[in-house]
Design a protein around this nucleic acid. Sequence first.
DNA 1: AAATTGTGAAACCGAGTAGTTGCACATATA
DNA 2: TATATGTGCAACTACTCGGTTTCACAATTT
Lengths: 110, 110
Amino acid sequence: MRRDIFQAIADPTRRAILGLVALHAMTPNALAEHFDSTRQAVSKHIKILVECQLLEQQQQGREIYYQFNPQKMKEIDNWLDQFRRIWESRFDKLDNVLNQLKSKDNDRHE
Amino acid sequence: MRRDIFQAIADPTRRAILGLVALHAMTPNALAEHFDSTRQAVSKHIKILVECQLLEQQQQGREIYYQFNPQKMKEIDNWLDQFRRIWESRFDKLDNVLNQLKSKDNDRHE
DNA sequence: AAATTGTGAAACCGAGTAGTTGCACATATA
DNA sequence: TATATGTGCAACTACTCGGTTTCACAATTT
């Protein structure tokens, strides 16, 4: 059973859960109200998110609040670093092109 | 058939392909040499990456060079924005705690 | 104590996935 | 022209995945 963050965020429902929990900790029932599928289906998604540590449990009486663990999500960000360099340089190139067009445009109109 | 970037990067082989192609454009055969599975398996991964526009084809004689499309990868980065705010603020809090501990430590020793 | 509520776990199912082998076909090379 | 090479596509298979239904169980509420 593969259980890494990349596989975890591959599912749109799980991404939606993360988006909700990131705002404030929530119980499974509260989360399930936001989706069309059953509470059990949502609960299974939560289980997966807990297993890969994107969510953390916090028992409170008989309710369980799940909260978002940003540190784990940052691992995605770290992985993106190797590509960020590339798209930033391309944006720079695009910026240069745009700036050149702009200055030509200015030349023409002034 | 779901074909979005999140599902595309969920597979470790595809992530490895992206890492290689990000360095420079490569042919399927050249890529396949880096993996244990067959060329056809790698080719299927490439197809998926092309379908979700993370890779772009570039025919050259009978060879096909695949190159990385950073713009598409940036969509992951954009999605992360909603969480980035959170982990950055928590890091700030951690920094504050560390700074306080540090100043207490300094107090004790000076 | 009995009923209700919040939750997780197990069993099952249809669809999707990653891999394989085998084939087709176009482009280069002899 | 015959052969080798680079590539994509189709068929098949074992496995995974997301969903449902059903159950178990502990913590509240009546």
